[in-house]
Design a protein around this nucleic acid. Structure first.
Length: 481
RNA sequence: GGCGGCAUAGCCAAGUGGUAAGGCGACGGUCUGCAAAACCGUUAUUCUCCGGUUCAAAUCCGGAUGCCGCCUCCA
């Protein structure tokens, strides 16, 4: 089966055919760097990271570009309220962005251009649009004329009439059409400014993506992605201004990911229910978030809530335990992998699922199926299965790796969880160790009453004890269940 | 007001014509001083409701109800 991709512009799943065989040009709208990223940004990043990884796994030669919008109204505002130069606002949040993305295991794109590095190209594009009559200059503000572009509304499937009728925008009387949008803004006193033939000022919101995408990928290019909210107006406008300037099609496949709600409510700054990536990572392993998003179809809205995250956290551990068991089953000598057809069959289904518009939820179900297969074989405790397990594990790692999972060991997963728990609760690690030692001693003396008391005492502090052959260990006992 | 989406077991969630993936939970078992963890097994004759098309529908059509998103900065 060939790769099928849901294209926003057609509203259908389409066979994916890149412009140049074996090569994919991918552009994803990055962030405007005026604040720390929240889990909505994380979803977009993880969705497209997964698409990127999958394309690579299919041996496509992918050129992946993700931009930083580092000049914008919100950045200027932040610089004013915090009284720091606007450039520093950008630098600060770009660093923050990288910290988050690296933690989440998001692969770096090939190019990560910043808007301010391409001001000259933006000026040239605005100039072209002016010369072609698609834009007009009013006192240094340059607007794109939506009526001059016949396909305006094609992406978001709206007509100009509908939009004007339903518009709740403040009408700027100077504009020819209320939907005309700024390509270039005249700068006010104290704002960043660049000199241009049409007046000193700064770029409008959409122009940077038109410039950077086509500059690094050519025009047209294959895939343009981003969050669903960007369909209108951002991508509609990007498309309009690019196609008006070039006279050619801009993008072949538009891919948009759904939103993140929190407790069934839209996550937004005004409601005050945003959850930053950094705050999330204080509580959970980054792969919990990844697995959570991949358990849902990328186009559907997803509801973030404590219960779901706990469920996913357990599921993630399950996958890791299986991996651990598989490794242990191969200990004690070199194991020659022996072809295990069931594993090949599962791998094939995994690919089919991913080929069907990146159905990660279905693909994951096959990873769990393979986990079960491996455990069944490991349960047999039969030396002869070691080769089969080795083979199955190879595939298991491959599939999970394609989804960006298994970047840690189970030991790291659990020790990080313990550290997070101690930090969160303010508990002293040595106190816990001491209590565990006391209990070990009590158990040796068959003083099970005391042993159970200690166990209960720790349980109240969210600590769960495990008496394993290797000794007593502890894990975090999650309250929600 | 205009446009669009969604409704599947206790919870989360795939599935767009061929007879309901997967995860969590629960229950049973193995293990254990007892537990826990881990693993295995079981867990929806049915897909919001009412009509219709079809040999066949969760899937298509019509209607009803409920929830949500976009149209304004937003991943």
């Amino acid at each position: 089966m060939a790769l099928k991709v849901y294209n926003t512009i057609s509203g259908k799943k389409e066979d994916f055919t890149p412009l140049s065989e074996g090569k994919v040009k991918l552009y994803v709208c990055g962030v405007t760097v005026y604040d720390h990223c929240h889990i909505g940004h994380a979803r977009s990043a993880i969705v497209f990271d997964t698409i990127y990884r999958y394309l690579l796994s299919k041996n496509y030669e992918v050129t992946y570009v993700k931009n930083f919008t580092d000049i914008d109204d919100k950045i200027i505002k932040k610089s004013q309220t915090e009284n720091i130069p606007w450039q520093e606002v950008g630098e600060k949040y770009i660093r923050s962005f990288y910290d988050d993305m690296d933690a989440l295991g998001v692969l770096r794109p090939d190019h990560e251009p910043r808007a301010t590095q391409h001001i000259g190209d933006m000026i040239a594009l605005v100039d072209t649009l002016l010369k072609k009559g698609h834009a007009y200059n009013i006192d240094g503000d340059v607007y794109f004329s939506v009526e001059s572009f016949k396909n305006y509304g094609q992406l978001s499937k709206r007509s100009l009439e509908e939009m004007v009728a339903g518009a709740r925008v403040e009408v700027d009387e100077r504009k020819r059409n209320p939907l005309d949008f700024a390509l270039w803004k005249a700068s006010k006193e104290g704002e960043p400014s660049w000199d241009t033939p049409f007046g000193a000022g700064r770029p409008g919101w959409h122009i940077e993506c038109s410039v950077m995408s086509t500059l690094y990928l050519g025009n047209p290019f294959d895939i343009h992605g981003g969050g669903k909210d960007l369909v209108f107006p951002h991508h509609e406008n990007e498309k309009a201004q690019t196609e008006a300037a070039t006279g050619e099609r801009f993008v072949n496949y538009w891919i948009h990911n759904g939103f993140v709600n929190i407790d069934r409510e839209k996550m937004s700054k005004s409601i005050g229910n945003t959850l930053s990536i950094k705050d999330f990572l204080k509580e959970y392993h980054p792969e919990v978030l990844r697995l959570f998003f991949l358990s849902n179809h990328y186009r559907s809205p997803v509801d973030y809530n404590e219960q779901s995250i706990e469920d996913v956290n357990r599921a993630l551990h399950r996958l890791y335990y299986t991996r651990q068991r598989a490794m242990e089953a191969q200990k004690g000598g070199k194991v020659e992998p022996r072809t295990y057809p069931e594993a090949d069959e599962i791998a094939k289904k995994f690919v089919d699922a991913m080929d069907d518009d990146f159905n990660t939820a279905l693909a994951l179900s096959y990873v769990f199926e393979l986990s079960k297969e491996i455990n069944r074989m490991a349960d047999e405790k039969d030396e002869s299965t070691a080769g089969l397990i080795a083979y199955a594990e190879g595939i298991y790692e491959l599939l999970a790796g394609t989804l960006g999972l298994f970047t840690d060991s189970i030991e790291a997963l659990e020790s990080q969880e313990r550290i997070r728990h101690l930090t969160r609760t303010g508990l002293d690690g040595t106190f816990v160790e001491q209590a565990i030692n006391d209990r070990v001693e009590a158990r040796k003396n068959k003083d099970f009453k005391k042993a159970d008391e200690i166990r209960n005492m720790l349980a109240e502090k969210g600590i769960m004890l495990l008496d394993t052959p290797k000794g007593t260990q502890w894990r975090v006992k999650h309250s929600v269940s």
